[in-house]
């Protein structure tokens, strides 16, 4: 081998050699797939939902039955067979699930986070954390079954008027399901609080209780809020547990009135599943109503995720 060859071998730019180019493009395409997914979700939901509303359907070149957007967003009746598409009962049920699960999950989740980050020994942490992960890993349809078969009868001994399908037990299981999410994100935020703040508190003579409640929690507040929003967006999108446990009667209920939780209702996600198990033919107005609900759902959860992201960024900057 001559010296020229050696020099060439040593200085050759390998950046665009065929092998490099091929692998790099493959990896790039994989990364771009996520953007393609997002765009297809948005485009698909918007076009199909546009075909659903009478105001936009002509633009999409769709003929046949459509629904008025005003009726959709303000109607209080959801009866597919009568073609009455009022989304308010569904939204009210979804809100009820969210409020109910928040009552269960937010205090318990934050308490868990404080315990794990401030009190638990490393050994206790190594047992409790995987156990909490299991809570989030149980399939949601199983939670729904638990709610109907075990929790509702147990609650009925306390509250005799409870229906077979009710919002109360559905909210409880959804709450249990999202505890790990609140706990793990809040705990991350609390662990990120600098130790010097705690030491300063102890130096002033504060007790462990004072330090946890008066220093750590306020310092981690934005992280805790971000975990709340994320967990609630999970509760809104939760499907199978509420489909099995909350019943299939679309009632307009008041999420802030505890008595309304004793009855069943139909959250948005459950309505979508019910539409499809009831033999929806492709292309009909009922089929398109699916996408209208889906778009509403996607939009709500997306906005919540973005807000949670922004809040979380704030705490990262602070720490």
């Amino acid at each position: 081998m001559s010296t020229d060859d050696l020099t060439e071998d040593l200085t050759r730019r390998t950046e665009n050699a065929p092998q490099e180019l091929l692998t790099r493009s493959f990896f790039f395409l994989c990364a771009v797939l996520s953007i393609v997914t997002t765009i297809s979700i948005i485009v698909l939901l918007t076009t199909e939902a546009a075909k659903f509303f009478s105001a936009t359907a002509p633009l999409m070149g769709v003929e046949g039955p459509t629904a008025s957007a005003v009726d959709f967003f303000t109607g209080t009746e959801w009866i597919i067979n009568n073609e009455q598409f009022g989304v308010l009962p569904l939204v009210s049920a979804t809100l009820a699930i969210t409020v109910g699960s928040a009552v269960v999950a937010l205090p318990l989740g934050v308490a868990t986070a404080i315990y794990l980050s401030e009190y638990a020994s490393p050994r206790a942490q190594s047992v409790l954390k995987p156990a909490l992960e299991v809570l989030a890993g149980v399939p949601t349809v199983v939670y729904g079954f638990f709610a109907v078969v075990y929790i509702t009868p147990a609650l009925r001994t306390l509250i005799p008027g409870l229906g077979t399908f009710n919002m109360l037990s559905a909210s409880i299981v959804v709450g249990i399901m999202i505890i790990p999410m609140v706990a793990s994100i809040s705990e991350d935020a609390m662990s990120a609080v600098p130790d010097s703040l705690r030491q300063a508190g102890y130096g002033m003579g504060a007790t462990k209780f004072d330090v946890s409640v008066g220093i750590v929690v306020p310092a981690a507040l934005s992280g805790i809020f971000s975990s709340f929003i994320l967990a609630l967006s999970r509760a809104i999108g939760e499907t199978m547990a509420v489909t099995v446990a909350a019943g299939s009667q679309a009632n307009l209920i008041n999420p802030l009135n505890p008595v309304d939780y004793l009855e069943g209702a139909l959250p948005m996600t459950a309505a979508m599943v019910n539409l499809l198990t009831g033999d929806v033919t492709g292309g009909g107005v009922a089929y398109r109503s699916l996408f209208a609900i889906g778009l509403t759902l996607f939009f709500i959860t997306l906005v919540m995720n973005i807000i949670s992201d922004l809040v979380a960024q704030r705490y990262r900057e602070e720490s």
């Binding site: 996520s34 997914t37 997002t38 297809s40 979700i41 698909l44 939901l45 994320l230 967006s233 999970r234 809104i236 999108g237 939760e238 499907t239 996600t269 979508m272 599943v273 699916l290 996408f291 889906g294 759902l297 996607f298 959860t301 997306l302 919540m304 995720n305 973005i306 992201d309």
Partner: peptide
Amino acid sequence: NLAGVPSVVYGLL
């Protein structure tokens, strides 16, 4: 954000 999209929406996709 995609990780937070509800699974029914993926079903619709």
